[in-house]
Design a protein around this nucleic acid. Structure first.
Lengths: 330, 330
DNA sequence: CACTCTCTTGAAAAGCTTTTCTTGAAATAA
DNA sequence: TTATTTCAAGAAAAGCTTTTCAAGAGAGTG
């Protein structure tokens, strides 16, 4: 209870410096004294105070993590990946959720600065100039997931959303879809929603379809918004191919189509983005662009570790993705 | 960059003690000096070093959290609840995942001790005597979620699993199920799996059904294990009512029944435990015992806060639950 | 035998904050 | 004017660890 290194030193009949040397395996210690110290260490279950250590070494072995919402299984997977990789590197994870509220996010920067975390992994829907400013003040190594943001200090980890959306749309067209539509996410600059939209458009044009003939509706990445967007789309036109900017909206769209008695994929093909557990087991199962969020989390931590170890490292890290074809497309 | 309280003091022309008094709003400070300090504080964006503060005050305002797996949406919700309530109380959350590995869990106790967290919220499938021992050594306020464990120092937060399983089974019987079966979880002592099994059995006996006529199969809480368990059950007997110890196994069971062309709920009624997003949108939707994991997380933090504030508090806290009837039962 | 080198070990400082103790000044009362 | 009280603010200690510096002992070499 409340033992410190002095107590251990006294119990082992040595100086605190020697105890420290034994614990951290630094410097030479006579075998006999070493054994005495180890014995006391074991008996007492003493653990060095990370606060004092951190204060002295200016290093906490903790990374701060900001995600929008753990209810979203993708972010839960992301955090899981972070946690597992952090564990491998002897790092602790200080977790916060922002619900995409910028003020919250900024206040977390402050929190992390106070707690002297060694680095921050940030995953919000949008990283703004204001974020950058505050970040600059805090001056902590920083990893952004899911968005590109040009800054020499920033490491960005992301997939090539435009290319992925392009390929997904190409696939729909190759399977005979002629009347295309897209359920888009919010179109912030440089956001995933935006990039996916432009990839979609690129494939449309390349497929010889006029952008005017395409139906666009916007959702907010939730199942419900997908349901409603699909409704609006069908009211405008009888489409036969739908790309949704994420799986939740795609699932909502499927639900609406099923409710309306449409045949999937015979009458309408539909494709999502992200891939989560539900997409696989849903009926019909959903074709999608699979992003490995777990792996993404691990990669973020690896990038951070490399950076603080001064290993040469790209500022923009591209994640792999994969088209997964299931029951909602031909 | 790297400013400390002395620098601030110098910039404002006062002593560090005065700066501290301004920041913490303790003691009297002349208005003029106070303004000077506040101005410097704002300009520099200085934040006190939580390590030094924690070292001195012996308090970090951080709680350690151990959950088995964030891939499980229930635990993700649980953590979300913890995080949100922690935020309200000015607490940080140090998150770890154990994958139900006892050694990992114990090593996290050590980590938390090193980091001097103010408390630990533990949610594993099983809390053993070994856990208790290590815990005793660490001597940190401790909350256990999802299991009862008699110990004067421990706060346990849980639902009455036996009662809930009893009621769920009663419901199946009341809707005409006569050939009952249960897909159980692992039967560790005092675990949720065990309590749910005994509640099931109680209702069976009370319903005038012989325990011999009941088909029992064990799973491991995953979808796949539910699928396989349902297969084994049907090979033994044509049942018309199934209680699964959690939703994932229930969903796996439904999947198997659908694959076999059985009608739900006409031929077989099925009921799960927990309630998660998938259960609601699955086809058919799953009747279940709804546990509010988000709220559970909040309650754990509240209990912790009350405990360290020396408010009188129950050592065993009972969570509410609710029977949610959907498409998989009559 | 004298000298140098290596190996051990302890003392002390640094890292940053909060709080107690003290002192000085100002204000009030006699 | 003198004595007493109140307020303001600084100095210093405590909290715990790691590392540098210095010193002492022992071994090896000429």
């Amino acid at each position: 209870m409340g033992l410190n290194i002095k107590d251990i030193a006294k119990l082992a009949g040595v100086s605190p410096a020697t105890v420290s040397r034994v614990i951290n395996e630094t410097g030479n210690v006579a075998e006999e004294k070493k054994q005495r110290v180890l014995k006391v260490l074991k008996e007492t279950g003493y653990k060095p105070n990370a606060l004092a250590r951190g204060l002295l070494l200016n290093k906490t072995n903790v990374i701060g993590v900001i995600v929008p919402d753990l209810s979203n299984i993708n972010f839960a997977e992301f955090v899981k990946g972070i946690e597992n990789e952090a564990k491998l590197n002897g790092l602790g994870v200080l977790l916060t959720t922002s619900e995409n509220d910028t003020d919250s996010e900024i206040s977390y920067f402050q929190l992390f600065k106070e707690k002297r975390v060694d680095g921050i992994i940030f995953s919000g829907t949008i990283f703004t100039e204001k974020h950058r400013e505050e970040l600059e003040k805090a001056d902590i190594p920083f990893i952004v997931f899911g968005q590109w943001f040009e800054h020499y200090k920033l490491i960005c980890v992301n997939i090539d959303n435009e290319k992925a959306a392009y390929e997904a749309t190409k696939y729909l067209i190759s399977k005979g879809a002629k009347n295309l539509s897209m359920i888009m996410g919010p179109l912030w600059d440089r956001s995933a929603g935006y990039d996916r939209y432009s990839g979609f458009l690129k494939a449309v044009v390349e497929g010889g379809i006029s952008p005017k003939d395409v139906v666009l509706e916007e959702g907010d990445f939730t199942i419900k918004s997908g349901y409603r967007a699909m409704k609006r789309i069908l009211e405008k036109k009888n489409v036969d191919g739908v790309l949704a900017a994420n799986d939740f909206m795609a699932l909502g769209a499927i639900k609406y189509l099923v409710d309306m008695g449409m045949m999937i994929p015979d009458e309408v093909q539909i494709m999502g983005f992200d891939d989560n557990m539900i997409s696989e087991i849903y009926n019909p199962s959903l074709s999608t662009v699979k992003i490995n969020f777990y792996e993404a989390g691990r990669i973020c931590v690896k990038a951070f570790v490399d950076r603080i170890n001064n290993k040469p490292i790209e500022n923009n890290i591209l994640l792999p993705y994969e088209l997964v074809i299931r029951g909602s497309t031909k």
